[in-house]
Simulated scan of single mutants.
Amino acid sequence: MIRAGGPRSIGAGVRLWFSPARIREEGTTPDYRFSLANERTFLAWLRTGLALVGGGFAVDQFLPRLHEGVRLTFTVVLLVGGAACALRAVNHWMRCERAMRRGEDLPVSRFPSALALAVGALAAAVVVVVLLGWAG
């Protein structure tokens, strides 16, 4: 059984991303509806990540007159946010599936709040840039 805590368990957790059948070795099978709901949440996180990646490409391609440093910053923030969402999706799916199989409380995370604040801050920055007309 894989235990939480320490660098070794982090590596073991990441290995579960590529071998989800190993999760079945833990605990008992939860009601399939909960597993399917967990999968839908995973897919929603992936859609969010794809939207952020798309936004990053859109900023880079469709705002060429924007100051290069500002455009690059917005692009990188959106692309990194998309990557973080994708990694978060698989990690959260695995952690929730394990918790359900073990009969534990579902894991909590600050990631949704951090993502919402980051997207809000980025949107506010875009409004400022548009209002000030920072073109390169």
Rank of each mutant, 00 (worst) to 15 (best):
L36G: 09
V108P: 14
I10H: 10
E39K: 08
L63G: 09
L72M: 09
N91I: 00
F74V: 06
F42T: 06
V14I: 04
F111N: 01
G56S: 04
A83V: 06
L79I: 03
W17F: 10
G54C: 03
R22C: 00
G82A: 00
S19G: 13
V14L: 04
A99E: 06
A44F: 07
V129A: 10
P7R: 15
G82E: 02
D31E: 07
V108F: 11
V80E: 02
L43H: 04
A125D: 01
C85H: 02
F111D: 01
E39V: 06
V59G: 03
V76Q: 10
V128C: 01
L46V: 08
R3G: 14
I23K: 01
P20C: 03
F18H: 01
V119G: 03
L36Q: 10
D105A: 15
A86V: 07
A37Y: 10
G11L: 06
W17R: 02
A123L: 03
G55S: 04
A89F: 00
W93D: 07
E97I: 02
P20Y: 02
R88V: 14
H67Q: 14
G136L: 15
R95D: 08
G11Y: 04
L43K: 08
P107T: 04
G56R: 01
V129G: 06
P20Q: 01
A84M: 08
L72E: 12
G5I: 12
S35P: 13
L52K: 00
V77W: 06
R15F: 02
V80F: 09
G5S: 04
P112I: 03
A86R: 08
A21T: 05
A51D: 05
A12F: 13
M100E: 04
A51E: 05
T41A: 12
F74R: 06
G13R: 07
G81L: 01
A12S: 06
R3Y: 06
L72T: 13
H67F: 13
